[in-house]
């Protein structure tokens, strides 16, 4: 029993290592994906701060930094699912399910790998935000905790992406759906403005949008130097757990 857990954990670590090695060989995607958030902060953020649209918010650049981190990480996480579907067409998935590790650890390993890939945006966006004057806490515990919780949240979006990739079946349809949901997820959340100024329907969507809670976590940890993130973590956990369970179920079905 103990040995089984150990093997499952080692195989999950191996999949994370695989992802990190891939990143090292080809960091281009990450760099290319960093351009947009940098523009959000250095152009949109700076301009909006100057026109002072949201009076309730003190420093706008600082305010949107966590939101922009999430926007760009979620993009990557949501695009990640396609790689698993490619592996179904290729033999990797077939090979993995004949290895001695449990099937669930294949999914968990890949989800975690996707979360880590997505969270690379954390550092890039934080540095560019600080460069244009965002005031981010320097407490290393908060910074690390923020990173870990970002990976955690992105795991949910990676699972979601795998579920979509599997049910959409073709690459084109998958890309279409992903394109259609990423922007609304971003705009209908507290990433760019506080929830209370939103109109009714959008407000409700923002409240059930898991992105909102991850942004909230980062805002508390990185800006307000507060660790009252327990409630947010519960919501994010529900999101991650549900999507992961569905992804495991669906994976079992597609290999049949």
């Amino acid at each position: 029993m103990y040995k089984q857990y150990k093997n499952a954990i080692l195989s999950i670590l191996a999949m994370i290592e695989m992802e990190l090695r891939r990143l090292r060989h080809d960091p281009l995607e990450i760099i290319a994906r960093a351009i947009q958030p940098i523009l959000w902060i250095t152009v949109f953020g700076v301009v909006m701060a100057r026109v002072r649209v949201f009076l309730s918010i003190g420093d706008y650049i600082t305010f949107i930094t966590p939101g922009v981190i999430l926007q760009s990480s979620t993009f990557i996480a949501l695009a990640y699912g396609i790689s698993l579907v490619f592996e179904r067409d290729l033999g990797i998935l077939k090979k993995l399910i004949t290895s001695p590790i449990p099937r669930s650890s294949i999914v968990i390993g890949r989800i975690l790998a996707g979360g880590i890939r997505a969270s690379t945006q954390y550092i890039i966006v934080l540095i560019s935000a600080i460069a244009v004057g965002a005031k981010i806490v320097s407490n290393p515990i908060n910074l690390l905790l923020g990173y870990a919780l970002l990976v955690y949240g992105c795991m949910g979006f990676t699972s979601l992406s795998m579920i979509l990739a599997i049910t959409m079946k073709t690459r084109e349809r998958f890309m279409g759906i992903i394109g259609a949901i990423t922007m609304p997820l971003f705009f209908a959340s507290n990433a760019l403005y506080p929830i209370d100024i939103m109109p009714g329907a959008i407000k409700y969507f923002a409240i059930v949008n898991p992105l909102t809670y991850i942004v909230d976590i980062l805002r508390k940890l990185l800006i307000y130097n507060s660790c009252e993130v327990f409630n947010d973590i519960i919501v994010v956990t529900i999101f991650v757990a549900c999507t992961t369970v569905v992804a495991i179920k669906i994976l079992n079905k597609i290999v049949e």
Binding site: N7, A14, M15, E17, R21, L90, I101
Partner: peptide, 21 residues
């Protein structure tokens, strides 16, 4: 094919050797 094409041959073996315990 069951290899990660964006890793080296050695890395593919290394990752699978870890997965296989």
């Amino acid at each position: 094919m069951s290899l990660w094409s964006d890793l080296t041959g050695y890395e593919n073996m290394l990752i699978y050797s870890k997965i296989y315990g």
